[in-house]
């Protein structure tokens, strides 16, 4: 893997993370609006992916990146521990969004392949 590719991947990840973050902020926190963010990420990844589903796989990363950034922004140790202790309440949205984004990107990528073949 050359430097150019690495740079491209980083840029790609950063873009997807920003897309995820902005779409979360702009949409109401109620159903079905909170689905928009992972759907947008999945769409983007599925459309942009070129070969070997590498970028499709990477589509799951913006979501944990966003959460990790959120956790790192917490400077109080007690607060961080408390957030982590919420258990499923913290992890379920991550897992849910992650699976949804990945499923959509995989779907779109594979539909593109079928359409081309």
């Amino acid at each position: 893997m050359n430097l150019k590719r690495i740079f491209k991947i980083i840029l790609y990840l950063a873009s997807l993370t920003v897309i995820y973050m902005i779409s979360l902020d702009l949409t109401p926190p109620t159903y079905p609006y909170y689905l928009i963010s992972p759907v947008v990420v999945g769409l983007f990844a599925g459309l942009m992916s070129t070969r070997n589903m590498d970028l499709v796989v990477l589509s799951i990363l913006p979501i944990p990146i966003y959460y990790i950034a959120f956790l790192l922004s917490i400077t109080e140790v007690y607060t961080l521990n408390k957030v982590l202790s919420t258990g499923l309440i913290l992890y379920i949205p991550i897992i849910y969004h992650l699976i949804l984004a990945f499923s959509i990107s995989a779907l779109i990528y594979n539909v593109r392949i079928l359409l081309r073949s």
Binding site: L24, Y34, F70, I89, P93, I94, Y96, H97
Partner: peptide, 9 residues
């Protein structure tokens, strides 16, 4: 709980 952060947090 499915809207991250603004929901439960």
């Amino acid at each position: 709980i499915l809207h991250p952060l603004n929901g439960s947090f």
